[in-house]
Amino acid sequence: MTNALTFMIVDDDADDCEFFHEAISEINPLFKCLTASNGEEALMKLRGEAQPLPDFIFLDLNMQRMDGRKCLAELKKDLNLKDIPVIILTTSASQKDIDETKMLGAFHFMTKPSEYQKLRKEIAFVLSQNKSGHPGITL
């Protein structure tokens, strides 16, 4: 099995997407990163051009057009997408948001850290959980 995983970051903040991409590349330069600026764009890419499908989706909650909650609900209804682990990556630390997204099927909830190294450590922690069916992930 190859350790070249594919990630999708769904966030309307271009700087946050770049921050995430840099952290992923530092964890493993073979990792690939796809981006979408809202839930609607993410679903369109995932249902059309994103092949192979990502191994993990990192999803912001607060976006225009389609927010993260609606996108998560749609992902979990789609037979081809429902098993992709979705990690909520947002500025919110609200227990209500945590509970709601877990109930909708989120794999993990992560409040966006303000420091790069904290983001990198949080991403590495999520990957180390190995619940995505990717044994032997090298970090």
Rank of each mutant, 00 (worst) to 15 (best):
K45H: 04
C17F: 06
R65F: 13
D60C: 06
E74K: 00
Y116L: 05
N28K: 05
G68S: 04
F125G: 12
I24F: 01
M8Q: 05
R69N: 12
Q129N: 11
P113H: 01
H134W: 04
G48R: 08
S25W: 09
D97V: 10
R47A: 12
F7S: 01
L75I: 10
D11F: 02
K118E: 06
K102P: 11
C17Q: 11
R65M: 12
K96L: 10
I24Y: 00
F20I: 15
R69K: 13
M1G: 14
I24H: 01
S37N: 15
P135D: 01
A106C: 13
D16G: 10
G39T: 10
M103D: 09
K102R: 15
P113N: 11
L34P: 05
N28Y: 00
D60V: 08
G39I: 07
S132F: 09
D16V: 14
E26M: 04
M66K: 02
I137V: 14
M66G: 04
I27S: 02
C71L: 13
P85F: 00
R47P: 13
C33I: 12
T2N: 09
D15H: 14
A36V: 08
D11H: 03
G68M: 04
I88T: 02
E122F: 00
H21L: 05
H108Y: 13
K131F: 08
Q64Y: 13
Y116H: 13
F31A: 10
L34W: 11
I88W: 07
S94T: 10
F109G: 04
G68F: 01
L5M: 09
L34K: 10
P135Q: 05
S132G: 15
T6R: 03
D60N: 04
K82S: 03
L127T: 09
L104T: 04
F107Q: 05
I9Y: 00
N3V: 00
I27H: 08
F125C: 14
M110L: 15
R47L: 13
M63I: 11
Q117F: 09
V126R: 03
S128V: 02
F19W: 07
E18L: 05
S128R: 12
L34I: 12
M103F: 12
L30P: 13
L59K: 03
L43K: 04
E122Y: 05
I57E: 03
K76A: 11
L5C: 00
L79A: 12
A106D: 07
I123F: 00
I87S: 02
L89D: 03
E74I: 09
I137D: 00
E41P: 08
G136Q: 02
